[in-house]
């Protein structure tokens, strides 16, 4: 088989039953993988700046917490009614912990916590509140925006869809 024929065969393959089975299995695998396991999403909004930028593209890896629990500082995707629209947020407190923000600084159970991912100056104040059972407390990294314009708070663990791949 000459090179020319091989190239032609690659771009214009003969429609055989073997070829059709191969194409169908690739299509089905891609549908299952990108539809349920590694969901592509685009980032809209500035609440996770500078870690994630508005307009960025990423994938939500759904198996991250199959055998583990979310930890503090993890970035997670929180679902609304389904997987079409999600919130990308940072876990700052876990169940049973008391979360507080004093002049932009995070306090968990009264202890100051370093947050290297918060790069913009913040003066947020949030009175102490306990995270309920089976819940996590999430906030975006961009705390330079007004606190009232920022969507944050306690979410049920069952709403965690996964984590961004990068």
């Amino acid at each position: 088989m000459d090179v020319h024929h091989k190239i032609r065969q690659f771009f214009f393959p003969s429609i055989t039953s073997k070829f059709l089975i191969r194409v169908s299995s690739v299509a089905l695998s891609a549908y299952l993988f990108f539809g349920y396991l590694c969901i592509p999403f685009s980032i809209r909004g500035i609440s996770m700046e500078p870690t994630y930028h508005n307009g960025g593209i990423n994938f939500c890896w759904r198996l991250r917490y199959l055998f583990s629990e979310p930890k503090r500082h993890d970035v997670v995707a929180i679902r609304f009614a389904g997987s079409k629209v999600m919130l990308l947020k940072r876990v700052i407190a876990l169940e049973g912990e008391k979360v507080e923000l004093r002049n932009g600084k995070l306090f968990i159970d009264g202890r100051g916590i370093e947050e290297p991912y918060v790069r913009y100056p913040s003066a947020w104040n949030l009175s102490p509140r306990q995270v309920d059972k089976d819940c996590i407390y999430v906030v975006g990294d961009n705390r330079s925006m007004p606190i009232d314009d920022h969507h944050f708070g306690q979410a049920s663990k069952s709403r965690i869809m996964g984590v961004p791949l990068w």
């Binding site: 609304f80 009614a81 389904g82 079409k84 629209v85």
Partner: peptide, 21 residues
């Protein structure tokens, strides 16, 4: 509206959970 899930808990009653943007 996204991710509309429709259930019929009673006759002639529909309950819809969805995301609105």
């Amino acid at each position: 509206f996204y991710d509309l899930q429709v259930v019929f808990p009673e006759k002639e009653v529909a309950k819809v959970t969805l995301t609105a943007r």
